[in-house]
Design a protein around this nucleic acid. Structure first.
Lengths: 213, 213
DNA sequence: TCCGAATTTGACCATCCGGTCGATAAAACA
DNA sequence: TGTTTTATCGACCGGATGGTCAAATTCGGA
């Protein structure tokens, strides 16, 4: 068999090398972009030769695609945890906190996605229209329910979700800009951001009748 | 003179061709990224040959750099208009509206910047640390004054500014994702976004003592 | 109209890069 | 140990691409 990646029962070496390649590809793709990254770079980072890399993946696009597919799942985990049975304010606050933590702890993943979307999502358009939309619609319905019950302000739930994405992922994707404005002290900046966003959304989503507590 | 772009008194042709090239470069760079764009593509879009393009610009990087430098000025105009003498709520609301309009009307400019920042701002690091930081610090001081006077909630003014950037530019930079989630009806989406953001920031920034009007 | 300066381009070069191939080495297994 | 399968890589290919150059054409002012 010439194409190792397509095997049904991958060997130990196949598993290890595939992981090493994907880890290296995340590093290189997220900092250089798809076009800016080279297979030689990825191979060197992964500790093997280019032909050897291409023994495990059919093409550069294949590496990229598999990386994105694997990552999307992790990336959506914070939203999946949004619980219809919880307290609306706490659930949304916790969601913002989890997303901000992901931006802090996984900036490469965030940048990889940002770069892909920025170029029109050519490799994952179907994932956006499929699993992503499905999850967003599901959770938007929960939020809409909270709004209808007067437990949060009557806001458009999908705009709420994408706005939370914007404000949290911004801290990974635009880190270079934030470094220039705030200085390079990341941990302090993230603490301030969490405080700012918690306050903004807490007040901004408080139901009109009852002042937030 | 071999390098037309460096002349003191540009001819009519120099002005026209330089503009055509920059317009074409904006189109190509913003959709393909710096690495993904080719000089042939830019030249063809601008209606001339590649060597002719290189008669006006010394290199691909030169085109990119001049584009970014010119654009930054336009891009910061909405923030420049933030008026210390105005009503805080109205000023910030108007700022959000202007930024959202720019994301709607100039998505290519937004994407060009986003791509540059995403890759670590290699070509404009000095612009971020210089004019950008200066303007942000100036306007942050105004907002801090409003907060100190109790005219808005006591929030970190710089985080407010970058958060407004995030939520507005998101509508240009992540348009592909929003298309997948909302469908392709841009004008409706922007109307909803304006309404959502106006409400969120209006309530989120209202001073704690006085309920917002 | 004439002339020097400015403009334009076809042909070309060097390099980079994704991908292939055949030969070799290392595992896995019997 | 012998044999088959798997893994590795040096050398190479072809196309794309940034950039050069010299020759040709056009422009603009006197």
């Amino acid at each position: 068999m010439t194409r190792a990646a397509s095997r049904q029962n991958p060997t130990r070496i196949q598993r290890e090398k595939t992981e090493a390649i994907l880890a290296a590809a995340l590093e290189v793709f997220s900092t250089m972009g798809f076009r800016g990254a080279t297979l030689d770079q990825i191979a060197e980072t992964a500790g093997l030769s280019k032909p050897n890399l291409l023994y495990y993946f059919a093409s550069k696009e294949d590496v990229h695609r598999m990386l994105l597919e694997r990552l999307l799942d992790t990336w959506l985990e914070p939203l999946r945890q949004l619980d219809a049975a919880g307290d609306p304010g706490e659930e949304i606050g916790a969601y913002i906190r989890r997303k901000l933590e992901m931006a802090r702890d996984y900036p490469r993943e965030s940048r990889l996605f940002a770069g892909e979307i920025l170029r029109g999502a050519p490799h994952i358009a179907d994932l956006l229209a499929g699993p992503l939309k499905a999850l967003v619609d599901e959770k938007a319905a929960i939020i809409a329910g909270w709004a209808a019950q007067g437990r949060i302000a009557p806001v458009d739930p999908r705009h709420l979700i994408v706005t939370i994405w914007a404000v949290t992922q911004h801290h990974a994707d635009f880190a270079a800009q934030l470094d220039a404005l705030f200085g390079p002290d990341d941990s302090r900046r993230f603490r301030e951001a969490e405080r700012f966003l918690a306050g903004l959304f807490d007040r901004g989503l408080a139901p009109p009748d009852h002042p937030q507590g």
